[in-house]
Amino acid sequence: MSQAPASTATFRVGTRGSALAVTQTTTVAEALAAASGHPYELVRVKTEGDVTSGPLSQLGGTGVFAAALRLALLEGECDVAVHSLKDLPSAQPQGLVIAATPARVDVRDALCARDGLTLAALPPGAKVGTGSPRRGAQLLAARPDLQIVDIRGNVGTRLGRVAGKAPAADDGGVGRGVQGDLDAVVLAAAGLARLGFEEHITEYLDPAVMLPAPGQGALAVECRPETAADGVIAGALAALDDLPTRLAVTAERALLSRLEAGCAAPVGALASLQNGGLRLEAVVCSTDGTRLLRRSLAGEATAGAAAGLGVRLAEQLLADGAAELAALAGH
């Protein structure tokens, strides 16, 4: 029997089941298919973060959305997995590599408020929903009078918590039951844009007010090393990797790793290419927003220097009291 042409080999892409995850995974899968000439199949994987209703900060620290996808990769259930990089633990597990970081999109957080309100225009004592201690702390730093409400659920469910907004049909059951009880929620601008929900945004929060999570706005395409080295989509993975994005997120994640802080820690970081170099800015907050340490550092824009930049800025933050401020693990 003659073998089928190599171009018919299908690669399998692991994804969470939420509308946002499927949307961003499909975008990556189609780019890989176009570049490689191979068709793809989506493999939906249910994760602990999708089925547990408690606060994210109490769901085992880091990686609650990534662990099941990584296990599926290691066990050969899929060939690549697509993660939101901000949800990915900074420690890379043995047997897996981040083969591509596609070009980053909007890094900012976005306020979605009732009646078109901005952060400054929210009434005193307004209730603002977020599942992120980083967002909550920086909101309180800007507006100490706000009431921060811990919320869960996918993007549509969270939007439905805002007074006057109907929930979009993208949630998988987590966080349902309460609607219209908040004045605003804060979500990643990138996720809202990927879902076509920009009309809900009443203000894009400048990084000067709210530094994003390390890796926010970026995706990570993870796989086994042999897939990246000589698999049918190896060349496509290499072509999809965006160097400026990889440099920036490498610095941000190195800072997070040195601080021994997880995805839920009140830590923000943003690196960018400026004047031929790489500049990294970071903030560590007390969860009540009363104290913030904000520092920046510049270095060379090379793969070898990016991680070192993150470590050096983390060391500066630790020397200035970051561990006591945010009760960082391991310090």
Results as ranks from 00 to 15, higher is better:
V22Y: 02
G321K: 10
G136Q: 10
S36E: 09
A314V: 12
P167I: 02
I201K: 03
A31T: 13
T27S: 06
G14N: 00
R253N: 10
R224C: 02
G14H: 02
L159Q: 08
L96Y: 00
E199N: 08
S257T: 05
R246F: 04
L111Q: 07
D242H: 14
V105P: 01
L259R: 04
L139R: 13
R253I: 07
A6Q: 03
C223I: 05
V186K: 00
A103I: 00
A81Q: 02
A327R: 15
G17R: 14
D87E: 08
T245Q: 01
P55T: 05
R253A: 14
G330L: 09
G61C: 06
R143K: 03
C263Y: 00
G156A: 14
G60F: 11
S132G: 09
R44L: 11
V221H: 10
A34F: 04
C78W: 03
V221R: 05
I151P: 04
C78E: 02
Q58K: 10
A265N: 09
F65S: 10
L278V: 07
L71F: 04
L309I: 05
L59V: 12
L111T: 07
A193C: 00
L88A: 02
P89N: 06
V162W: 08
A319P: 02
P133M: 07
G173H: 06
D145K: 07
F197P: 03
G131E: 15
E199P: 01
A236H: 03
D106R: 11
T15F: 06
V267L: 12
L187A: 01
T157K: 10
G289F: 03
P144D: 13
D230T: 08
V221I: 13
A137S: 10
L309Y: 01
D50T: 07
I148P: 11
Q138C: 13
A254W: 02
H83F: 15
L146K: 07
L146D: 08
G17V: 13
P89T: 08
G14R: 02
A238Y: 14
A169W: 02
Q138G: 09
A21F: 02
G164Y: 12
G262H: 10
A265E: 14
A184I: 09
R279M: 04
G262W: 11
E75R: 10
A218H: 06
G268C: 10
G268T: 01
A81N: 03
D230K: 11
R291S: 07
E41R: 09
D242L: 02
D288S: 12
D87I: 03
S132R: 04
S57I: 13
A188R: 02
D181R: 06
E199Q: 15
V51F: 05
V13S: 11
D145R: 08
G136L: 11
A91R: 12
A166C: 05
P212W: 04
E226F: 01
P5A: 09
A269I: 09
E203F: 08
Q24N: 12
V64Q: 09
R224S: 03
G116R: 09
L297N: 04
G173A: 12
R108W: 00
Q274K: 10
G308K: 05
V13A: 10
L256T: 14
A234M: 06
V284W: 07
R44I: 15
T290N: 08
T290E: 14
A91W: 07
V311W: 03
R70S: 10
D170R: 03
L205D: 12
P207W: 08
T227Q: 12
L42H: 09
